[in-house]
Design a protein around this nucleic acid. Structure first.
Lengths: 149, 149
DNA sequence: CAAGGTAGTCAACCAAGTTGTCCAACCATA
DNA sequence: TATGGTTGGACAACTTGGTTGACTACCTTG
């Protein structure tokens, strides 16, 4: 049996490819994974570019590029930080929230198909197992999302 | 709970970081993941640069770069293909096999620690579950290893 | 044996990061 | 409250690790 990281990488790739293909089939412009992760991150909290960079596991400059793109494309906008005049909160526009909602549906479709393929309980074990491992290794501050290739 | 791909990406990153850190601690030069995957691939079969590219999920030119590096560093060598004068088999040197053996030990240490953290049966379920999903989606020809970021 | 496909290489290019530098604003503290 | 260290954001130069395209030599098949 292959080592765990290879299984993780291949599964990640396989799911991502499927997601991407279906987005294109539908005609929605397929952003990169990082963009989607930013949406999901912003949905749950107010965040600055620095926060986003940390969450993705890249430098703040790299995060700034992504935020700029999302801004140009109309998915996010920047608003002044209430107390810190240097900082800006990045927030989702309606377009951004709509995209996220659509992507969420697509993801849960894919996850449902995965459940049918390998069993609902197996999928549940995978999710809780991985989450527990992450908790064990990193505690509260989760690792960056970006896979090191 | 986070969607599956995020869990996969974070766990991949977390394990890879640990692996990398320990390699450095020991003083062994830490190659990139792709190099290790090439070793593992070559251990099981004779392969050309094109085969390797396909396995990694990159173009043959990108694979050629990696093979060149491994050649320069003494981990692999090229030998003529017995029947096809264009092609070359890439094969592991002793240095390459030694590195792989060492890495394998380190990986099984990490996997053992994972088993202790989340339970041996949970880990086993994760491995067989992911493998089953890959089988279900791709059949025999597995997807490339490279995570699309 | 002609026509199309394939392995490997060279070269130009590109995307997505990085490091380094800077400024304005923040914050702790003595 | 002055001050020295830190932080958010931006700009620029550079590096990395890929891509596409073109070409040759060789293979394969009708």
């Amino acid at each position: 049996m292959e080592p765990v990281p290879m299984l993780l990488a291949m599964t990640y790739r396989a799911m991502g490819d499927q997601f991407h293909d279906r987005l294109r089939q539908i005609g929605l412009e397929p952003l990169r994974p990082a963009h989607g992760y930013v949406f999901r991150f912003l949905k749950a909290r107010r965040a600055t570019t620095v926060d986003i960079g940390q969450h993705l596991g890249v430098t703040k400059q790299a995060a700034a590029k992504i935020v700029n793109e999302l801004d140009e494309w109309g998915y996010v906008l920047r608003e002044p930080h209430p107390t810190d005049k240097r900082a800006q909160y990045v927030t989702l526009t309606t377009k951004g929230r709509d995209y996220l909602k659509f992507a969420d549906n697509l993801w849960s479709d894919l996850e449902q198909e995965m459940a049918e393929a390998i069993g609902e309980d197996t999928l549940a074990t995978i999710k809780t197992g991985l989450a527990a491992y992450l908790q064990h290794v990193h505690g509260e501050d989760q690792p960056g999302l970006r896979p090191v290739w």
